[in-house]
Simulated scan of single mutants.
Amino acid sequence: MTGKKGLIIRHVPHEGIAGFREPVESAGYVLTRIDVEDPAFGTVDLTEPDLLIMMGGPMGVYEQDRHPWIGCQLRRLARRLAADRPTLGVCFGAQMMAAAMGSPVYPGPAKEVGFHALDFVDAASPLRHLAGVDVLHWHGDTFDLPEGVELLASTPAYRHQAFRRGPNILALQFHAEMGLDPRFEAWIEQWPEALAEVGSSADAMRGRHAEHGPAAVVAGRRMIAEWLAGLTS
């Protein structure tokens, strides 16, 4: 089937769909994108697209006083999730999904920044492709697991790295889409304090990106392709 509509919600310009674009388009989705700062964002029916993809951002779900669009997005996202419409959230997008499903989102114990493997991956889920693969982590917030979901991945620092609810709802705390996208340089330039907090540096992160990024994207694309093939609506 072709001509299915996919909508990307972008929270900041340098956090796009990146490596996930290929499997999504190969699955027959025609992608459009809207930024949360677009004046039209508040009028978009988030239940309408066949696939909704929400990417990352440096803000916290709890910062609604600084970012009024968060509350607006959460209300519309909750309606979509209640209707079990296919939805993918990455990092901040995953945190938004947890919040829209009624779970608190809050600062974690420390920044988790860099390329490293998940220490638990559900082998019966599409995340099986990520087992043993160093993927990018870049966050400092976490969330409680919403009711009725399955935990799919963990790291020692953050147990709640991914969850799904049935075949249509998938939330990923980490960035398996990143590894080949030149916008990664903007991440390094804009968040040097995150690198310092984990004892890394810009040059060290560039080196890890060059070493591990390509394999991470290959695995991430396989994961997304398998998830899309299993959607039921």
Rank of each mutant, 00 (worst) to 15 (best):
G56P: 03
D122T: 11
V12Q: 05
R10S: 14
R75A: 14
R164S: 12
T2W: 09
W138G: 02
T43G: 11
Q173G: 00
S154R: 13
Y62M: 02
M96E: 13
S103V: 10
G230P: 08
D181G: 07
K111E: 08
T232Y: 01
M55H: 06
C91Y: 06
A78Q: 13
D84N: 14
T87E: 03
I8P: 01
D144V: 09
S103M: 07
E185N: 12
H212Y: 11
C72T: 15
L46R: 00
S125K: 08
A176E: 04
E22K: 12
L88T: 06
R208N: 03
Q161E: 15
E189M: 10
E112K: 08
E211R: 15
V30M: 13
H209P: 05
G60N: 02
P23T: 09
H14D: 09
P104I: 04
A153S: 08
A98W: 14
T232L: 03
L77W: 01
A100T: 07
L136K: 00
G93N: 09
L130T: 00
F20T: 11
A157W: 03
G148H: 01
L88H: 03
A123T: 14
Y29F: 14
D122M: 11
F115E: 00
G60P: 00
D122Q: 07
I169Y: 08
